[in-house]
């Protein structure tokens, strides 16, 4: 009960916190409408292929306006969406706002070592100085970022174990009894066993029915992550470039 209350409290405070955070539409969330439908699907395919190849998740968000500063807005959005794989945190958010004249990179914990802030700032500035075109910019940026990450020797192999483990945990649905054995301490289990025995003395039918129910496995819900992102975390890293 206490836990449920706490979770509810956390959820409430979180949702009131994040009123202004847009919903993810997948790898490309173009709220400013700066891409044509073809460009949008081309970018999506590019990022999807990259994820398949390396497990790195790069998301693009375009918005005409946002409250607070770009770093704060990008941080909250990236973490809410959970870009990047869980525990590996290999996500990157590219926030673009033509109206505000700003491009912001938000780097997940796991990519900070491969694409440091100083380098991102340099790349952001230099790409914008070469092209002002809304579509060329992300294409060029992604190209540079891919090159750099490849050169730094990023390999998904040393993360494979973690990814597989997370996948397994997701696909395997536990029965209530299994959940009890892994999540509860011995005294709670003992109490439940004694209570069940008590119930058995009073009404054997009900007790057996409950036992059957506890042993059966639930249907697994296939909804993993929000809009396909893995649940990566962000620590405020990244850089902001002026796009004017």
């Amino acid at each position: 009960m206490k836990k449920i209350f706490l979770i509810l409290l956390l959820f409430l405070s979180y949702s009131s916190f994040s009123q202004t955070i847009p919903k993810s539409k997948g790898y490309v969330s173009d709220y400013e409408n700066i891409f044509t439908p073809e460009q949008n699907s081309q970018l999506t395919k590019l990022l999807l292929d990259y994820e398949k190849e390396t497990t790195i998740e790069i998301a693009i968000l375009t918005v005409p306006d946002f409250e607070s500063d770009a770093a704060d807005f990008a941080q909250k959005t990236a973490e809410k969406w959970g870009i990047g794989k869980k525990d590996i945190n290999n996500g990157l958010l590219i926030l673009m706002s033509k109206n505000k004249g700003v491009i912001r990179f938000q780097t997940g914990y796991g990519l900070e070592g491969y694409i440091p802030d100083g380098w991102l700032k340099h790349i952001g500035d230099s790409v914008i100085s070469v092209s002002k075109n809304s579509y060329d910019i992300p294409i060029l940026l992604i190209e540079k970022i891919k090159q750099r990450i490849g050169k730094e020797g990023y390999s998904q192999d040393h993360n494979k174990e973690l990814i597989d483990k997370n996948k397994k945990a997701k696909s395997k649905e536990e029965s209530p009894i299994e959940w009890m054995l892994t999540h509860m301490s011995w005294y709670w289990i003992l109490i439940i066993v004694v209570l069940w025995f008590l119930l058995f003395l009073i009404s054997p039918d009900t007790a057996l029915w409950i036992l059957f129910f506890a042993l059966s496995k639930g249907e697994s819900d296939s909804d993993s992550g929000s809009k396909g992102f893995g649940g990566g975390l962000f620590g405020g890293g990244g850089s902001t470039s002026s796009w004017k």
Binding site: A71, D72, Q75, P116, D117, G118, W119, L120, K121, H122, F234, G235, G236, G237, G238, S239, T240
Partner: peptide, 21 residues
Amino acid sequence: NEGFLNLQAQLEGTENRITVE
């Protein structure tokens, strides 16, 4: 100076990290 610009960007990033953490 490129080195200075790089440090400036890193410092800015670190300030953001401090806020987040």
